[in-house]
């Protein structure tokens, strides 16, 4: 049984321009299927505005889903009331993008790490102290006695992100959603933080959803990569498959081969393929990528492509691969 299973998960935002006009819906997440095994890390890659953050927050039930299903450890939590979700909030955690905003500025590091423990009524003061110090050690904020009493503004961006990671891990969750956890950090510390997260993920065999728009790093930090476009997942597969044999024209546009003596660097990664991302309020009919696609066929403009499995674990949604 997978740890997490998403079935046709949707999150539409209601957009009201005036009180009287009919509401419009912005389809930030629109029919996502995904399944995640225990201890597995998956990357979600896509250009900015494609719905990655919304997907992550919906999974964590920070947003109320519009439709579909979220099944966690076999339990359907899609529309569970917030009060009945405390057990889930202990098992699923978030690491946010902005390390400057993600820590309450009026708490010390110690208090920040103690909060989740207090809320879930874990241990006594002494035990919590041990857990907090241990967590600080695991994220390598040492000496711990020195960091514990500090306020977030006394820390660098990288150190703050370590605190945020420690906070996410302190409850020993089964699942962590990391939403662009290094995109706001100095380039010099990015790899370090990513490596730390990967280490911890493996050490504690957690499942990891790593949201990023940076395809370059994903291969090293996740077993699988899923490519998101306009609220939908258009390709999922093992990291090496996606990097070496991208199937979807959008994925191919994200990756563009260049000659390089080092085999590992033979790809160049683009954040934004040419063309405009579609409007999510009235997405294009048929395949949402067709206005930007160099291979557009008639069917692409009419019908949305189904999930096509070329191998057992490599899915693509593109008419090019449909059996005639």
């Amino acid at each position: 049984m997978p740890l997490l299973q998403l079935e046709q998960l949707s999150k539409w935002f209601e957009i009201k321009r005036t009180i009287f006009s009919k509401p419009l819906y912005l389809r930030a997440v629109d029919g996502v299927n995904l399944s995640l095994e225990e201890g597995e890390a998956i990357s979600i890659v896509g250009e900015s505005g494609c719905g990655k953050t919304t997907l992550g927050k919906t999974i964590l039930r920070l947003y109320e889903p519009t439709g579909g299903k979220i099944i966690f450890e076999g339990r359907d939590i899609t529309f569970e009331r917030a009060e009945a979700l405390l057990w889930y909030k202990r098992r699923a955690q978030i690491v946010q993008q902005d390390p400057f905003g993600s820590l309450p500025p009026f708490f010390t590091v110690y208090r920040i790490l103690e909060e989740p423990l207090l809320i879930h009524q874990i241990g006594n003061a002494k035990l919590r102290r041990e857990m907090i110090y241990k967590a600080l050690e695991t994220v390598r904020l040492t000496p711990v006695e020195e960091f514990a009493p500090k306020y977030p503004h006394m820390l660098s961006g990288g150190q703050r992100q370590r605190v945020a990671i420690a906070r996410a891990m302190i409850l020993r969750p089964k699942l962590i959603v990391a939403d662009e956890p290094v995109s706001m950090l100095d380039a010099s510390v990015r790899i370090e933080i990513l490596k730390l997260m990967r280490d911890l993920q493996k050490r504690f065999s957690m499942s990891f959803i790593y949201i990023t728009h940076d395809l370059a790093t994903t291969r090293y930090f996740s077993e699988r990569i899923s490519i998101m476009y306009a609220g939908q997942i258009i390709e999922i597969g093992p990291s090496n498959n996606i990097i070496n044999e991208p199937l979807h024209p959008y994925t191919q546009a994200l990756l563009k081969a260049i000659p390089d003596p080092d085999a590992n660097n033979r790809k160049i990664f683009r954040e934004v393929p040419p063309g405009e991302p579609p409007n999510l309020i009235s997405p294009p009919p048929g395949c949402r990528f067709h206005p930007r696609c160099p291979y557009t066929m008639d069917i692409c403009r009419i019908e949305s492509p189904p999930e096509i499995y070329l191998q057992k674990d490599h899915m693509v949604r593109c008419w090019l691969y449909a059996k005639k």
Binding site: K89, I94, Q96, P105, F106, E115, I119, A164
Partner: peptide, 24 residues
């Protein structure tokens, strides 16, 4: 974002109001 984080680790509305919003 830290309010969102608090929601993620299960803080109640009352806790968020008195411990996270009012001090700010």
């Amino acid at each position: 974002p830290y309010i969102e984080a608090a929601l993620a680790y299960g803080a109640s509305s009352r806790r968020i109001i008195f411990l996270y919003i009012i001090p700010k």
